[in-house]
């Protein structure tokens, strides 16, 4: 049985997928994951999830974010100034960085 492994670097961070292990049950999956995926990288916490329980979808079959113009969802569509409030500047920058400022 295959278990997918999610690792969190430090407290407060996100658990991100880092690999998988073969193991007969969840206790052994944790024991194996701990050595295989957490012995060298700084780790605060690990999750294991049975691979067969994971459903997936890819951008190829289901274009995330749609295929028609959705620029109205993005900060870059609005030509108003953001410098008056740091939190809006931050949001603006974060959105532009993931969108590649395509809008």
């Amino acid at each position: 049985m295959i278990w997918e492994v999610f690792r969190q670097d430090e407290p407060g961070g996100y658990h991100t997928h880092c690999g998988n292990v073969h193991a007969p049950d969840r206790e052994m999956a944790l024991l194996f994951a701990e050595i295989q995926h957490a012995r060298r990288k700084p780790t605060n916490s690990l999750w294991v999830v049975p691979q067969k329980e994971i459903a997936s979808q890819t951008d190829e079959t289901d274009r995330f974010g749609g295929t028609t113009d959705k620029t109205y969802r993005w900060v870059s569509a609005y030509n108003v100034d953001v410098e008056f409030a740091k939190e809006i500047e931050d949001s603006d920058r974060e959105q532009r960085s993931v969108a590649g400022d395509s809008a």
Partner: peptide, 8 residues
């Protein structure tokens, strides 16, 4: 992250 669009 999302909210910036709302204010703008």
């Amino acid at each position: 992250f999302e909210e910036g669009f709302h204010i703008k």
